[in-house]
Design a protein around this nucleic acid. Structure first.
Lengths: 344, 344
DNA sequence: GCGAGAACGGGCAACGTTTTCCAAAATGTT
DNA sequence: AACATTTTGGAAAACGTTGCCCGTTCTCGC
């Protein structure tokens, strides 16, 4: 199927100005509805814009200042929880001139560096970094360069805003739920974190802390039992295998993430066990599939939508006023009790 | 937590030139390793670049030509199938200077128009449009403006390349699988398409066609039974309800998408039935959750990764040579038989 | 009428690259 | 030694906006 596409020059502000019989300055003023344009002129210019189908070049704008672009960095496209956050961001930005562009799957520090650099290179007006692994130092350097909101990481900064769900409370919700059902040997599968600096900031660590604290609070300190793997399906499988091999097998497993719980369920099935008959299983995140009938996973709902709206709102605020003090928003998770947990 | 971020001017090509004692032209040449730069000069310039931490501004570049940005339009972040495609794209683009930026959730024609316009405004070098709803006419207009690859939509164009999975064959795989298991009353739930122009091009329509054709091929023409809803969980629920209310209830339901199958399973459970004991259920897409133990959905695997690599490769080709004839790549899906289908 | 001030419109210089050119120097060829 | 060629490096003009600044022309209060 041959035929080369016909090249066609883009309509510029100059074309519009000529067509409307005014200066480019005038067109620019109308575009940004800046001061100094009479209604008649506005009408003329707008007519010309429509007639010619003119669209301002973001590159040229970027060279002078704004690009009306918000960059969102996502660690993983597969976790539907992030889609909730995105929805919140989009909802908040709807009606503004800003366009959201996403860079995904930068699941390593160098990967994140590449992505954030790329966003800065492209003159984006603001960045929303979701669950970044990047060092605090680099994070602050980024935030000093461009308005930034960090999502899902605990710990405050003088230079960027922060939005996170309270993972400490969330872990407590699960432990309380299971304890109420009569469970005492409640085990946890955590994402192993080696980096000591990130230790206190990353959600996984906070969830583990919350688990420990809640266990103590319910007088179950002696039953604390943590398998340290990763927040992946395989990590859940391996973690569950470890826990099932204990001399005193737990009666409930709190997986640090829904995807981990999937691995746990697989391991149970392979061991000829089932949830909740033999062992109760809980996850964390309330991802879309957790609600599917055959799974029906008890989990913690992280108000992803609200996280998104808050992040976007804070970012817009900071774009308009870069010098206002930074804010830390901490949202409260809720329990989503379903059918993988049952009374002992 | 007060303290405004310290503003800091960006390092430009001029700074690098001064620091290296050469002209900006020279730096530019080194950057693009263009002709006319001696080894010594290259060394000097590279040293200066490293020392100053210089990064070229994409805006300024865009004003003159390339931005080294590839835009990917995704209809829906929640469908993990798209993540597979993205992985393929990233894999192919890895090692090049191109950065992928995603715009998501433009689940309507006006939404898609906004997104594609935004990408063109930003001078992106190429676009990958995944399962677009946009009219053929607009699609071609876009492709005439910027190198474009359309993914997941059947029908060829003289102006853009196309990559798609063969949905006709895929639907046939499911029907063959079910027929082999002894099923005869195999029903289908389709996504209702009203727009006649899109009718032949959209995957959902092709899947329904493939279903019809395969039914005839297996001598089951009289049992063709289609519930027309949407490709959503709720669509699956409603579709299953319709099918269950038939005087002659089907023994197998082929849902046009995995998410639809989830709704079907819910409807079965609510009716006191289960799969595959009472009714076999199959989906389409092999999304991540289809493989989860408790679900274990029989489905069709669309080589998402390959779709992505092919799309990216074609796009790079077209960016370097816009006049080469267009290509249509059609990949073959495979059956992923799991536990929601069983012999009659 | 008259001056002050507001309203309106436009000229022009950035912004940071790339891309022609073009000159000078080095090298090769008779 | 004179000339042709290649190599090397730079000057300068775009690219499409915006924002500062300046000159008009209104408007209005006296």
């Amino acid at each position: 199927m041959p035929r080369p596409p016909a090249p066609t020059r883009r309509v510029t502000i100059i074309d519009v100005a000529k067509h409307a019989g005014v200066s480019t300055t005038a067109v620019s003023k109308v575009l940004r509805n800046a001061y100094g344009a009479s209604p008649q002129m506005q009408a003329k210019v707008r007519a010309a814009i429509d007639e010619l189908g003119y669209r301002p070049s973001a590159s040229a704008r970027g060279l002078r200042g704004q690009t009306f672009t918000i960059g969102v960095m996502l660690p993983d496209l597969r976790n539907p929880f992030f889609a909730d956050i995105l929805d919140g961001i989009s909802a908040q930005l709807d009606g503004t001139d800003y366009q959201v562009l996403i860079a995904a799957s930068c699941n390593s520090e160098p990967g994140e560096a590449r992505v954030t650099d790329a966003m800065i290179d492209r003159n984006m007006d603001g960045l929303i970094l979701i669950a970044p692994l990047t060092s605090r130092q680099r994070l602050e350097r980024i935030a000093r360069t461009v308005p930034t909101v960090v999502v899902g990481r605990h710990g405050r900064s003088a230079v960027h805003d922060t939005v996170a769900d309270d993972d400490f409370i969330g872990a407590g919700l699960i432990v309380a739920h299971l304890a109420e059902l009569g469970h005492r040997r409640i085990a946890h599968i955590e994402h192993h974190e080696t980096n000591p600096i990130r230790l206190a900031e990353m959600p996984n660590a906070v969830r583990a802390d919350g688990y420990r604290h809640a266990m103590h609070a319910h007088g179950l300190g002696e039953h604390i039992d943590i398998a340290s793997t990763t927040y992946t399906q395989q990590g859940g499988y391996l973690g569950a295998q470890q826990l099932l091999a204990r001399p005193q097998r737990p009666t409930a497993i709190f997986a640090g993430a829904d995807i981990v719980a999937m691995g746990v369920l697989d391991a149970l099935a392979d061991a000829g066990l089932s949830a909740p008959a033999d062992i109760s299983v809980a996850g964390y995140d309330n991802t879309t599939f957790a609600a599917f009938g055959p799974i029906s996973l008890t989990t913690v709902d992280q108000a992803g939508h609200q996280i998104g709206t808050n992040a976007a709102r804070l970012l817009l605020d900071r774009i308009t006023d870069g010098s206002r003090p930074t804010t830390q928003v901490k949202l409260s998770p809720t329990l989503a009790a379903r059918r993988t947990t049952a009374p002992l």
